[in-house]
Amino acid sequence: MKTSLISQEELLLEFEKKINAEQKIEPLDWMPDEYRNHLIRQMSQHAHSEVIGMQPEGNWITRAPSLRSKKILLAKIQDEGGHGLYLYSAAETLGVSRDQFIQWLHEGKAKYASVFNYPTLTWADMGAIGWLVDGAAITNQVSLQRTSYGPYSRAMVRICKEESFHQRQGYEIMWKMMEGTKDQQEMAQDALNRWWWPALMMFGPHDSDSPRTSNAMKWKIKRETNDNLRQKFINKTIPQAELIGLKIPDSNLVKLSDENYQTSDINWDEFWKVVNGNGPCNEQRLAHHIKYHNEGAWVRESASLSNPK
């Protein structure tokens, strides 16, 4: 094989040349360990988020207000599970098994999006999650379609196609409630009040406090910085709120120009508290995942016994 004759420096040069030429890196290509490890961390966190994200919405399946909304919610949650599967299989191409990814999640070594550590208290939360949480996720994922790792990029393209239904169904819930009774309007506003800041936190810390951003940008794993993506989301979401009569819960909100807004700074203490495991539902979400994973062990075991490799 040629590999053994080429030095690490030459391999790195070749790798960076490909990245700079906007060529995708594929599973069998040489890549620096740091690049592989960044992807393992980011893609598994992304996959876990899709799967853990099924829990807050699953909370409302049996209490959906109509058959129509129940069918839609079921389809949306099934999509989230599917997105988790696209991402796990893309992440597995980096040489880590699915069992390993799940073990890291259960041990607390891998994270998932902190936003799912908030509780879903009313039906309006289904609207707020679809509109804001999926809306923020789409903003991030549209940008990640251009990520330099081929399998990740292709999974993102597939996911983005499906996500726009999620955001629209959420916004429709909010709109219908704003067209409804005073109680319904208050319920929708309350949901926005509770989900607005967690949604803005989804983009992560400020670029200046995000230690891993620089290599991730250089190697085009990330294509836009946290702050840029957050601003894009803010600018497109505020007019959507105003259109249906919702008020953004930020007394210092300033409209700088057309479709350009300045918000107050995020409460970073709360952000780090939730990231570090002390949000309202952290324990519950993980315990639920561990319980059902363990309860399914006998199924996996008997399936592998009846189909030996």
Partner: peptide, 8 residues
Amino acid sequence: MSNTDTQG
């Protein structure tokens, strides 16, 4: 590419 132990 790795195969997993318990997931087929």
